[in-house]
Write a protein that binds this DNA or RNA. Structure first.
Lengths: 244, 244
DNA sequence: CGGTTGAGTTGATCTGAGTCAAACACTCCA
DNA sequence: TGGAGTGTTTGACTCAGATCAACTCAACCG
């Protein structure tokens, strides 16, 4: 990851953090260099282990930040133990809610996770006088809202098969996997349990529906966490969405 | 609704639109008077009839605005006719996505609706140089995101009874209804069909579960759309949430 | 090696909510 | 006064997905 590089003209140093859309000049093109310097000053990196809790329900967060590497799950635990995932953050996604102290859900590292963190207090102070940063955050929040609503349709109206097909198709689109002759090779980033929590199902149903898709030739399992999609369009058709 | 009134000192005219959090100086206290004047210039009111489509999927919206009166539902229609509501906007909520042309769902008036609208193009232009407006919009979007995530838990993990109890409790909290001796008198703003679409159920199940809550004495139906809640805490306990 | 542990699969059974069908209760209008 | 139309309730039946319970498989380790 390039943190400091030289700009095309080879003069002024440009702050860069390729995977962090907040502090990356290339992505956040309307930020001024001064703002990026300020961000740089309050930036730090931290790595979390698989399963580690990054932030828990109700706890005041000291940092906000971007996911640089790995996946973070946001989930809510009901008092009796039922769990529902409410978001999955991939590299480039923003974690933490500017202007709010606490979040009503747990953020947990799925696999190993690297965050590009900013001190929350100072980040919020910057927010007060940076329209560009505000704008960027608004855009990202709107994207999350869209994703959440898409997921509401899945949770409320889709069958188990459609849910699994949607999830696999989503994963395939997220992972910029190369297309080889026999199809798209992808890895499932979640355990069966996490998939169940994301899709509002049980592990057994997840397992059975993956089995069904396999039997129908829509996916080919190499092992429990790796599969090949011979025809992504055919799989997407099983997801019940509009063809766009 | 007072659009122009006099401020406490009785000198300068203050722009006011009590139910519109965007153009209401009292609510949006960090906006400058100048910004409010600009907003005032691009503001208009429009009334929609019950069931009228305010905006439909994929169609470019000419306006964004606040709900002043009535309720607006946001819903997504699957190709085979299944419908899932993804949001309910009450007075004070913002409709339309600044910075985005189209929305991937339908906005439909539930009952009669009055909107306080702003020309989208010009509103977005203002957004470019008003940190206060940006900030306000970010706050509202975060609220919507929270609500959406809360709803994901309901859709993914709650039973039909818990869904109905959640919805009635939510409605009770939203409606600033007076508490009389026998309990809280509230009106259900939605038809059984709309409730079903919101909760990810069928009308029959909605009807049966309302019947069950009635039989258990948690609610008293005066007619299909009006009920009394003798004990809101008892009802909320049926909703399956943490007691906060 | 054998033993343990955690993830995943598979089978038998149960049940909550969906489906289908009918009846009821309104309001609106002719 | 009597449909026509819309929203709501109720009943009988079905089925998708949950539950409960084994069982497989691989990784890890003393």
């Amino acid at each position: 990851m390039t943190l400091h590089s030289t700009n095309p003209e080879g003069r002024k140093p440009v702050i860069r953090c390729a995977a962090c859309p907040i502090a990356d000049r290339a992505v956040c093109s309307y930020s001024t260099t001064r703002e990026l310097s300020l961000l740089e000053a309050i930036k730090s990196y931290r790595t979390y282990l698989p399963g580690e809790e990054i932030q828990s329900t109700g706890e005041a967060a000291a940092h906000v930040g971007s996911v640089v590497e790995g996946i973070v799950s946001l989930s809510r635990l009901m008092p009796d133990g039922r769990r529902q995932m409410v978001g999955l953050l991939f590299p480039g996604d923003f974690l933490g809610r500017a202007t709010r102290d606490t979040a009503p859900y747990d953020a947990i590292a799925v696999g190993q996770v690297t965050l590009c963190q900013f001190d929350r207090r100072r980040f919020e102070k910057m927010l007060g006088d940076s329209p560009a940063l505000n704008r960027r955050l608004l855009d990202m929040t709107l994207d999350e809202l869209d994703a959440a609503r898409e997921w509401m349709v899945l949770l409320g109206r889709k069958t188990a098969r459609e849910k699994i097909a949607s999830f696999i198709a989503l994963t395939a689109r997220r992972s910029r996997a190369p297309v080889s002759a026999d199809g798209l090779h992808i890895a499932l980033p979640l355990t069966r349990e996490a998939m169940a929590d994301y899709l509002g199902l049980t592990i057994e149903t997840v397992s059975r529906q993956i089995g069904a898709l396999k039997r129908d030739g829509l996916i080919i399992l190499t092992d429990a966490r790796h599969l090949v999609i011979p025809d992504l369009d055919a799989l997407s058709a099983e997801a019940g969405d509009d063809v766009v």
